[in-house]
């Protein structure tokens, strides 16, 4: 059994005001997000298309499962939509190594704040924390080593509505009223979502099933044009990750349900 590493500062200096990053620094486990140096000549792994739409009950967040490095498919079962707390999820595009670390820091930050400060971190506080993490990663992003552009979806219990944000590489957060997309496949579906929301049916009026159908169609469209997007792959039994963020919390949609919607509303609505 390893001995627990406990610097004396953790005993003497107990007041980190609920800030998990400061605690990590004091404990000697600093997160290496802000490192700078020469750009290494490596082919980095990247994760691709994620999208989120606001629908009647909250926000539906989806990600395909593929991770690529250059032209190579590295992994086909990546989970790009990660639970951060009971009412929030983060969807990642860009370097998975840094994005997973970011999601983990975020998850710990929220829980650490709640447990140490005896109250839930406010929604603005949560958004600022993610903003800070993205900005701290700027050095890596500028060198082309690892840019992370997350989508963040949360349910605002005070206002009783789902909220959706995306971030640029400088950590600026933008709230999206209808939908948000990120990753290499996102350029192909952004216009499609705009079209659907403006001239077909407002996304916010969709129920879960309609929102799921839209999302699966978009992922298939992205996979059609973008080689780095996995889409829905019937032959290999790999389905995308979809999570619904609602008043009741975060619900991961089951594979059986996704297959049923796919068969009915994606393949079944094919006009060809």
């Amino acid at each position: 059994m390893d001995k627990l590493t406990l610097p004396p500062s953790l005993w003497q200096h107990t007041d980190f005001q609920g800030d998990f990053l400061t605690l990590l620094g004091a404990a000697g486990h600093g997160v290496q997000l802000g490192e700078t140096g020469d750009s290494a000549n490596i082919t980095q792994v990247e994760a691709t298309t994620v999208l989120a739409i606001r629908y009647a009950d909250g926000v539906l967040v989806a990600g395909d499962r593929r991770a690529t490095a250059g032209n190579t498919i590295m992994y086909d079962r990546a989970d790009k939509v990660i639970d951060v707390d009971d009412h929030s999820v983060m969807a990642i595009s860009g370097s998975p190594a840094l994005a997973y670390e970011m999601a983990r820091v975020l998850e710990y930050s929220f829980r650490y704040y709640r447990r140490s400060q005896l109250q839930e971190l406010s929604m603005e506080g949560k958004l600022r924390t993610l903003s800070r993490l993205v900005r701290d990663n700027l050095g890596m992003a500028l060198q082309g080593i690892g840019v992370v552009l997350p989508l963040f979806a949360t349910y605002d219990l005070a206002d009783d509505e789902g909220r959706l944000y995306f971030y640029d590489a400088l950590g600026t957060q933008f709230e999206m009223a209808e939908f948000a997309v990120a990753g290499s496949g996102s350029v192909w579906i952004r216009g499609a979502l705009y079209y659907q929301n403006r001239w077909q049916r407002r996304l916010i009026d969709s129920d879960l099933r309609e929102a799921t159908a839209t999302t699966l169609r978009m992922l298939e469209a992205a996979a059609h044009y973008d080689a780095a997007t996995g889409g829905v792959r019937e032959q290999t039994a790999i389905v995308p990750t979809l999570k619904a963020v609602t008043r009741d919390g975060v619900q991961t949609l089951e594979e059986g349900y996704l297959r049923e919607v796919y068969t009915d509303a994606v393949e079944g609505s094919d006009v060809r």
Partner: peptide, 18 residues
């Protein structure tokens, strides 16, 4: 109580994260 509570929380979170 507060000092020990914070110590337990700090330890648990750094250990769980690392």
């Amino acid at each position: 109580v507060e000092r020990l509570r914070m110590m337990a929380i700090n330890l648990a979170h750094t250990e769980g994260f690392a």
